[in-house]
Design a binder for these strands. Structure first.
Lengths: 268, 268
DNA sequence: GTTGGACTCTCCCACCGTGGGAGCGTCCAC
DNA sequence: GTGGACGCTCCCACGGTGGGAGAGTCCAAC
């Protein structure tokens, strides 16, 4: 008999969901029982609702948010496939983020937290031809690439004899709106037509060298900032990165980056 | 001057944490400011606290729970490494779970939700020699392997002419305490010394065939249960899996499994 | 018909970490 | 001394699930 209705407990066991979950799905409109007794408030489900409930259980197992599941249930097959593809991409992204985290954790567990030798030194003044950009922290990688794509052709076209390495300039704080820049040191005076000119003042700096993927730079910055503050110094913008061995020259694992932060005595 | 104290806002920018976070870490005892003004309640941080704060930010970035971070901060270097290794393993596990989810999602997005052809049919009675086990849902894979490890040697030793495929028996509901069994069909009568004997009654069943990794079996069960309930039928334990092509014979992608659920007319 | 036990109801709280906002107090430089 | 930036506390929200209290309901066995 198709008409036989099921109480919430039976239905829950049938669909591998908990009673709590079913009530929650009712409250949020995701899956309402086919009948609710007006007097007692008892929920009754039809066997035919098991398909939806099972689908919900399945999609929850893949960690889709309930809101997304709701859209997927209401949508037709083609839109549903689109939604699932979106979620697949979201999940793929999370996996790659997690893999980066895993690598960092690995490194931390083996090398320990310090691991970086921080030195104080003096930097000479440097004159750079730079390209600037504004972005969010997540976009840095892409934006830097774009800046390089604008910087290098101009240097080539104008025959500028720039001196490696390439430089990256960053603010001290990782805010939502970051002003970043990529530059190349140019030999003298007055810059390159079509490129902005910038002077990095010389003076006291703290520095360290990071070897490995850029995703693990935070480890190095951690050590660097910690050392700076422990010495009672104050970091000053912009933070400078010198790309000693860049992505064009070597695989991720062998990238070499010098991190340089100008510092100032903490004159209170 | 090392003695200069920082207000919460300054300190937050320094450590790439939000003010809200710092207050929360104070409340939970993870990182207390070095001084709290008794009158105004203002929190003041010492520059030397930046190391801890930066470490917290770093570990949070790797998604470690605050409680774990707290333990890691208090612990010495060697215990810290141990904690980090644990977390690394946890993360690795999550990644592999997510990868399984990703594969299922992929399949769902491309093949759509139905994808399985469910047929109704009649099964003959089968006599099995079985090995039983009790486990949680997560342990199924391991336990089944163990059962096989107990079943096959006895069959070989006794020279029993069993008929492939191997069978798995499962309860209908995935509860915390699952009674599962693995069995082989034996030709006649009275079983095998040292093995339990079981009879699978013949009768009406719903069935479908799954090709692919076991992690994606839920997709097939979803279709199967949905079809059963839509036809107004009632599933009956035990659910039977026939391992037509098993892990010993083929790679994950080519595993073939027949899912069989005895059903009963819904006599109300 | 009654009783008892299994089931169901609603409502509140907890987890975790973060952010938003209200309403009010404090600090410092002009 | 005044304005604006900054600080404080307290509450609520997100996501999804579980636990538990206290009360009501259903049904089968007696």
């Amino acid at each position: 008999m198709r008409d036989e209705l099921l109480t919430i407990g039976r239905f829950a066991r049938l669909c591998r969901l908990s009673v709590k979950q079913l009530r929650h799905y009712d409250d949020t409109g995701l899956l309402a029982p086919i009948r609710v007794d007006a007097g007692s408030g008892y929920r009754y489900y039809a066997p035919g609702q098991a398909r939806d409930a099972l689908t919900i259980a399945l999609l929850r197992e893949m960690d889709l948010p309930l809101a997304v599941i709701a859209r997927a249930l209401e949508a037709g097959p083609e839109r549903r496939a689109g939604i699932l593809r979106e979620e697949r991409d979201r999940l793929a992204e999370r996996i790659s983020r997690d893999q980066a985290r895993l690598a960092m954790l690995e490194r931390l567990a083996e090398a320990g937290l310090p691991g970086y030798e921080v030195t104080l030194g003096r930097e000479p003044e440097r004159r750079l031809a730079v390209v600037r950009a504004v972005c969010t922290p997540a976009e840095i990688g892409t934006r830097i690439g774009e800046c390089l794509g604008r910087l290098l052709p101009v240097l080539g076209r104008t025959g500028t004899a720039w001196e490696p390495p390439l430089w990256g300039l960053y603010p001290l704080d990782l805010e939502e709106r970051l002003e970043i820049a990529v530059g190349a040191q140019i030999p003298q005076g007055e810059g390159v037509p079509g490129l902005e000119f910038a002077v990095l003042p010389g003076g006291l700096v703290a520095e360290t060298t990071h070897i490995g993927p850029y995703a693990q730079l935070p480890l190095a910055y951690n050590a660097l900032f910690a050392a700076i503050h422990e010495r009672g110094l104050r970091p000053r913008a912009p933070v400078r990165e010198a790309y000693l061995v860049g992505p064009a020259e070597a695989p991720q694992e062998e990238l070499m980056t010098r991190l340089i932060i100008p510092v100032q005595e903490n004159t209170a």
